[in-house]
C-alpha cells in the first residue's frame, strides 16, 4: 500500500479558516442587524415623542 504524503495539517488549517471566515461574516451581519434594530427603536420612540409635542 502506498503511503500518502501527510498534509492533513494544511487541510485542517484550510477548513478552519473557511469556517471562521463565514462565521465572522455571519456574525457581522447579525451585529449590524442588531445595531440597526436598536437604532430603529430609539428613532421610533423619538418620533412618537415629537408627534406628541406637536
Amino acid at each position: 500500500m502506498e503511503t500518502f504524503p501527510d498534509t492533513s495539517g494544511y487541510m485542517i488549517a484550510g477548513f478552519v479558516i473557511a469556517f471562521a471566515t463565514m462565521g465572522i461574516y455571519i456574525f457581522s451581519i447579525y451585529l449590524r442587524n442588531r445595531n440597526l434594530k436598536s437604532d430603529l427603536e430609539t428613532l421610533e420612540s423619538l418620533e412618537t415623542k415629537q408627534s406628541k409635542k406637536k
Partner: peptide
C-alpha cells in the same frame, strides 16, 4: 469533502480543500 471523498494519492489530505 472530509470523509466521503477518497484521499488523493499525490497531494494527500490537503487536496480536500479543493472542494470548498
Amino acid at each position: 469533502a472530509l470523509v466521503f471523498a477518497p484521499t488523493e494519492l499525490v497531494m494527500g489530505d490537503v487536496q480536500r480543500v479543493f472542494y470548498f
